[in-house]
């Protein structure tokens, strides 16, 4: 089997075998991170441009490190202080980048669909979605999947509980699809005000009682709570959110013994997750960060080589 995808806009058109191929490729990249010389020449002469219209440290840095470990030249283009501030349209910006020789463009944008639009407009470069609005965050889903697969092996029949602000979460949308595609069962929980009205379309089970949702879970995935949602009146206070939906040691006791605790970061200690859990032996948060580098290496390698349709 070979890799034929030129762009990564979402994982919702991936087959199980695509995920499996990527997991295996990622594990071979992962071992590079343990070497004393963490560099391989595969992407010499390739240019990767990160364009982030929303703030992000870990995703952008992770792409930057991944590209550099494979010897690509990585350029960061931030929206503030750039031509975007001078009113240049997105389309002109990316045409400019392509004219400068970009082989891949990693984009994060607040609007849904921007990566898709860019993929249509670019003539040569690959587009990787680094998160678009509330729509998708495919590389996060892939690194989450890899973290779980590396620890648990096959995810067939495993129970994943995703808890928190499902409504605004592109991470949840992409994770639900990815985990289900490899055979896991996904349960969602959180306040009903933070659930989408079309929750059934997400193809996962909704369990308002968090203790029930977590019961026997192999993976407990906590989503970040954005403080501005409180101002919008979606929940009364961060304290109250923590009391009802925060992951404490006691609540984690409901999950399967040794269950993996995951979070996309950055974490709000004392809101969606208690500090003792975030720092505890079941926390995989930092393993997720490392997995992020390996998964992005695998993606850049596969997408930047060969001749794509």
């Amino acid at each position: 089997m070979s890799w034929r995808r030129k762009h990564l806009i979402d994982v919702d058109d991936w087959e199980r075998e695509d995920f499996e191929l990527l997991l295996e490729q990622t594990s071979n990249m992962d071992s590079i991170l343990d070497r004393s010389i963490k560099k391989a020449p595969a992407l010499r002469g390739k240019i990767v441009v990160n364009i982030f219209y929303e703030p992000s440290t870990r995703t952008r840095t992770s792409f930057e490190i991944a590209g550099k470990l494979l010897s690509a030249d990585v350029i960061n283009w931030t929206a503030s202080g750039s031509s975007a501030a001078k009113g240049e349209s997105l389309r002109d910006t990316i045409w400019t980048l392509e004219a400068m020789g970009a082989d891949a463009v990693v984009i994060r944008h607040g609007e849904v669909g921007v990566p898709y639009y860019l993929a249509e407009k670019l003539k040569k470069a690959s587009v990787i979605n680094g998160g678009d609005g509330t729509h998708a965050h495919p590389t996060q889903a892939l690194l989450d999947l890899y973290t779980a697969w590396r620890e648990l092996g096959s995810l067939d029949g495993k129970k994943v509980a995703i808890v928190g602000d499902i409504l605004h979460s592109r991470v949840a949308r992409s994770d639900i699809y990815a985990f289900k595609a490899v055979g896991a069962e996904v349960y969602l929980s959180g306040p009903s005000t933070l659930m989408p009205t079309d929750i059934n379309s997400l193809n996962a089970m909704y369990e308002p009682n968090i203790a029930e949702a977590i019961e026997g879970a192999d993976i407990v995935y906590m989503l970040r709570i954005q403080r501005e949602r409180q101002d919008a009146g979606l929940f009364p206070s961060l304290d109250e959110y923590h009391r009802r939906y925060g992951l404490t040691d006691k609540l984690l006791g409901k999950a399967k013994k040794g269950a993996l605790v995951m979070h996309p970061g950055p974490i709000n200690r004392g809101v969606e997750i208690a500090s003792s859990v975030a720092d505890g032996p079941q926390s995989f948060v930092l393993k997720q960060v490392r997995a992020g580098v390996a998964v992005r290496m695998a993606l850049l390698y596969l997408m930047l080589g060969g001749v794509k349709e």
Binding site: M1, S2, Q25, S27, N28, A42, L70, A298, Y301
Partner: peptide, 23 residues
């Protein structure tokens, strides 16, 4: 040892070769 990432023909190939394990 897998040599895929070190090949000198990566830019010439139709399909990007898959990486195997180095251990």
């Amino acid at each position: 040892l897998d040599i895929t990432l070190y090949r000198d023909d990566l830019t010439l190939l139709q399909d990007q070769p898959l990486v195997r394990s180095t251990s």
